[in-house]
Design a protein around this nucleic acid. Structure first.
Lengths: 204, 204, 204, 204
DNA sequence: CATGAATGAGTCTTCATTCAT
DNA sequence: TATGAATGAAGACTCATTCAT
């Protein structure tokens, strides 16, 4: 147990800890990591300065705890349901990804901020990317074998590029999408599909 | 005092200032912004602590100066030569973009780090993105009018997605590209072209 | 943050803050404002360096807090009991003024020191002077109307001069008074009375 | 020779030194001593930063040099012409004092500022006060012996009080004098005269 | 558990002063 | 002499973290 966090033993404790995490997220998203003082988090949660240390050892630990559920949720949103039709699968995967990541873009930007200095957090982002990459690469390979994706595409680089597109779009470019396709889902799916050259399932 | 930087008046001064900027870049890339102390920059440049303040008022100013030339170079790499053939143009643009941005990815990550807290730097990234977006959007519109790009694509969202792909790839995903296409240029161009549905120039 | 001072919330806090103010006064009077380091105040109070900042944001704030009670006391000592007999009233007023101001001359000199640079403190001195001037001017006018003070004296300039005499004497000249009239009260009252030409109350 | 100042050897040198002193006075009066940086003085004089050190060793030395002529002039203005008629003499002395001191009040306030920390300057003010005191005390004694000043006044305390009045008025209270007696000279003389009880010269 | 006071290491920043040219 | 770059001691201030109550 590399316990970076002390678990509460009472109900009151759990409630306090939860409100601290909620508060931390609010403050981190508002001010970024560096500019957030432990006192800000305490104030936002309506508890005293020292209480934060009842549950967390360091500021990094607070951020990590704040990320905890999110990371699981994000990993899940990447590792989605296996639909048979690849186009539907893409549409579905993109929808899940965009929903989860765009909603959490502010916090993810904070993780990006800290990740420059702290491996602990670059590891988190790395894992997310690696998971995404693996899944997409595998999928492309499979469809190439079935002859439904351009064979001249390098599966891994292609996957990396497409992952970059979805991640980058969800993090920085959402603001630039058009009102006709406010969250970009339809467009991303189209681009993805056509870039791979995905043809309809002949067996379908 | 609006001047965030005092210009040197002698050659010796210019040399010192330049070496400070070089040193700053090294240190920023190695340690990130938050973890860099002014003293680190001075030490790396081989000057005394206070000398940094001869030319810069704050650590942010040092980073800004470090970015100065880079930003110009990056804007230029976006705003490239106008080739007639759209496919060639894409290939060329991507090559220039990837070269410039991937080379400078570490420093750009530092800017990303600070941009969470300091508008001054989020503005820089914003301008880069906006410039890129404008150019790509215009290009897509033009080709749509000529009937050479799928008309069902929303030009702006599409542009945002493709820009996200190239930017994200250059910043975070380069490490994941395959040895067959080490810098991903060929792949990115293929994806870009096919996703738009770009057909060969009928007039050609 | 308009609050220049964080109020303590416990008794322990109040005690610490108080001892800081006491310590500050000692150190300021000994070294002057410029030569006093925050650390000196902390050391004198027997607390750590950072503790000063628990209650005060800046060195100026410490001085301001140090002045707080004093200013009230000084204003009160100016705005004294209304005796009927003007001569007695003068004697009484001078006694109160000299006692309060001469006792606090060292601290007042420190305020004078800072006031050259910081309006906040020139305002304090200004208020003290203005209050004194107002009171004395009014008193002179009243007695002139009763024909008991030379009518050829300009009330305001006269008041300013007499105030200057008492203030200056209390601040800088006390050291020069003679052993026969160690605190100068008797002499000041005589001078004051005769300069105005105050005659005994005919109604008395 | 405790040479705190290097004398210029050329004409150009003398001119530079003079302009530095003039500049210093301007800046000191505007910003006070503590808030004045050597660079401010250089800038005001239109010379380079380092040039100040060609003529002065420390910032204190600059202030001292700035005071040099002034001190002589002030001492002279105290030690004025010996008129026979004491009332005229008082009027004359006050006029000279007020003119000199009120004109130079801003610089004197700066000396007061530094004198809290630096004996060198408290000595200057002390000398001025002592000189003034001596002269006035002697004069009072003389007139008491002639029976023309109230014998119940302690000469030294009285002198201290009257000196305090003139000094204080010239330094802080000028702003409060009335438009009818803008520089307060007439009023001060009246007060002075009457407080002493000075009667016309019987021998006159 | 919660509180808020206390701690002190860590940095930034200033600026008088020195020095090479 | 004049310049302006370089130095580095000095001090203010921050804030994560600890601790007594």
């Amino acid at each position: 147990m590399t316990a970076t966090t002390r678990e509460p033993r009472t109900d009151r404790g759990r409630r306090t800890r939860d409100s601290l995490i909620t508060a931390a997220r609010t403050v981190f998203e508002r001010q970024g990591f560096a500019a957030t003082r432990m006192g800000d988090i305490a104030a936002e949660a309506g508890v005293s300065h020292g209480t934060v240390y009842t549950y967390f050892d360091t500021k990094e630990d607070v951020l990590e705890a704040t990320m905890q559920q999110l990371v699981d949720q994000l990993l899940e949103s990447i590792d989605g349901a296996d639909l048979t039709d690849p186009v539907e699968r893409i549409a579905n995967a993109n929808e899940r990804y965009l929903t989860s990541f765009a909603d959490n873009a502010p916090l993810l930007r904070v993780v990006e901020e800290v990740s420059v200095t702290d491996v602990r957090f670059s590891a988190i982002l790395d894992e997310l990317r690696r998971t995404h990459l693996k899944r997409v690469t595998a999928q492309i390979r499979r469809q190439q074998r079935k002859g439904r994706v351009h064979p001249d595409l390098d599966p891994q680089t292609t996957a990396a590029a497409l992952c970059a597109m979805v991640e980058g779009f969800s993090r920085h470019w959402t603001a630039f999408s058009s009102p006709d396709d406010p969250n970009g889902q339809a467009t991303l799916t189209l681009l993805w599909q056509r870039s791979l050259g995905l043809t309809p399932d002949p067996s379908g």
